[in-house]
C-alpha cells in the first residue's frame, strides 16, 4: 500500500520550469529520500505536496485518494529555512502552531510537556525564542513538526545546524516515528544520512526525475563488480590483466589491502581462487558504490560533464 504518490507533477515559473513531469512513490512506513543538487526543484516539489505552492499539472494521491486541503492536518513539515516568532514564549508558540494544525489546546499542552521532558528542555517553556541558541530553536521546531502525530512527515534538510549528538537524537526519533507508523520524506544533500536511514530515494536534477527506487537495488544496479580484499603476503598480488583490474593495492597497517575489479562475467569465487594461491586472506567484501558516488556520477552525466 502506498501512502503518498505524486504523478507527473509539472510546475513552471515565469522564467523557468521548476518541475518537469516528476513522479514519486512513497510507500507506507518508509523513509524516502528526495535528492538533488541545489535548484533542482526539491523544495518546489515539497511545497506542492504541502499545498503551499500550486502545481500546473499532475496529481497528488494520498492513501489512494486525491489529496484534499483537509489532509494538511496529517502532514508535519519542517522547512529548510527555519524560523519561529522571536518575541513569543516557547511554550505558547508551540501550542499556537499545534492548534493551527488542528489540535485542541489541552492536547497540545499535554503532548508538548511530554516532548519537552523527553528532550530535557522543560525549563524552556517560558523563555522567549530569541533567548535560545539556534540549535535549541531547531529542537523546538522539530517537536512542533511532529507534535500532532502526522502520518506523513516532510523534512527539508533536517540535520543542518545540529551538532552530532543532536543529529543522533533526531535520527533515533525519526526512526522511532517510522516504527510507529509514520511515513517520512527527506530532502537533503547529506548522502551519509540518506544511506543510513532511507529506504527509497528519488534523484531530481534540472527539474526532472533521473533516478528512483529502492536504495539497495539502486546500489546493486550501480555496482562495478569491485571487491576489497585484505590479505597477508610478502608481495603485491599478481593477477591476469585480461580478467581483473587492480584498482589499488597497498599496505595498510599489518596487512595489505587491494581493490580489484572483475572485468569478465566471472564470479567472485574465481577472484578468490586466484588470490588464495598467492596470499592468506583476512577479509573480503564487495565494494558497492556510495550514494555520494552515484549522485555525483548521475548528476554529472545528466549535466553533460
Amino acid at each position: 500500500m502506498i501512502t503518498l504518490e505524486a504523478r507527473n507533477i509539472t510546475k513552471s515559473y515565469a522564467s523557468h520550469t521548476a518541475l518537469d513531469d516528476v513522479s514519486i512513490e512513497v510507500p507506507e512506513q518508509s523513509i524516502f529520500g528526495l535528492l538533488g543538487p541545489n535548484g533542482a526543484g526539491k523544495t518546489t516539489l515539497i511545497r506542492i505536496i504541502n499545498m503551499i505552492a500550486v502545481k500546473d499539472a499532475g496529481e497528488i494521491w494520498l492513501n489512494g485518494k486525491p489529496m484534499q486541503p483537509s489532509d494538511a492536518a496529517h502532514i508535519g513539515y519542517l522547512p529548510e529555512e527555519r524560523g519561529l516568532y522571536k518575541k513569543m514564549k516557547v511554550g505558547e508558540q508551540a501550542v499556537y502552531l499545534a492548534r493551527l494544525k488542528g489540535m485542541s489546546h489541552h492536547d497540545a499542552k499535554t503532548k508538548l510537556r511530554w516532548w519537552f521532558e523527553k528532550f530535557e528542555i522543560g525549563g524552556w517553556w517560558n523563555k522567549k525564542v530569541e533567548e535560545l541558541s539556534k540549535g535549541m530553536q531547531q529542537k523546538i521546531q522539530f517537536i512542533v513538526t511532529v507534535l500532532h502525530n502526522p502520518r506523513l512527515l516532510i523534512f527539508d534538510e533536517p540535520f543542518s545546524g545540529f551538532d552530532p549528538i543532536n543529529v543522533n537524537l533526531l535520527k533515533t526519533e525519526i526512526l522511532r516515528l517510522r516504527e510507529e507508523g509514520a511515513t517520512v520524506i527527506f530532502s537533503t544533500h547529506n548522502m551519509a544520512s540518506v544511506e543510513e536511514i532511507c529506504d527509497r530515494i528519488t534523484l531530481i536534477n534540472q527539474s526532472k526525475n533521473i533516478l528512483s527506487g529502492d536504495i539497495h537495488q539502486i546500489k546493486q544496479s550501480f555496482k562495478t563488480h569491485t571487491y576489497q580484499i585484505r590479505y597477508q603476503a610478502p608481495r603485491n598480488l599478481l593477477l591476469p590483466a585480461s580478467k581483473f583490474e587492480v584498482v589499488n593495492d597497498m599496505k595498510k597497517g599489518e596487512c595489505q589491502e587491494a581493490q580489484i575489479k572483475i572485468l569478465t562475467n566471472d564470479t567472485a569465487n574465481v577472484l578468490l581462487q586466484q588470490v588464495m594461491q598467492q596470499a592468506e586472506i583476512i577479509g573480503f567484501n564487495e565494494l558497492l558504490p556510495s550514494l555520494n558516488d552515484i549522485f555525483i556520477s548521475e548528476v554529472g552525466n545528466n549535466n553533460g560533464l
Partner: peptide, 16 residues
C-alpha cells in the same frame, strides 16, 4: 515582514 524574514510563514501556510 517579520514572518517573512524569519521564515515562519512557510510553517504557518502549510496549516492555513
Amino acid at each position: 515582514i517579520e514572518e517573512k524574514s524569519n521564515r515562519i510563514v512557510e510553517v504557518i501556510i502549510s496549516s492555513v
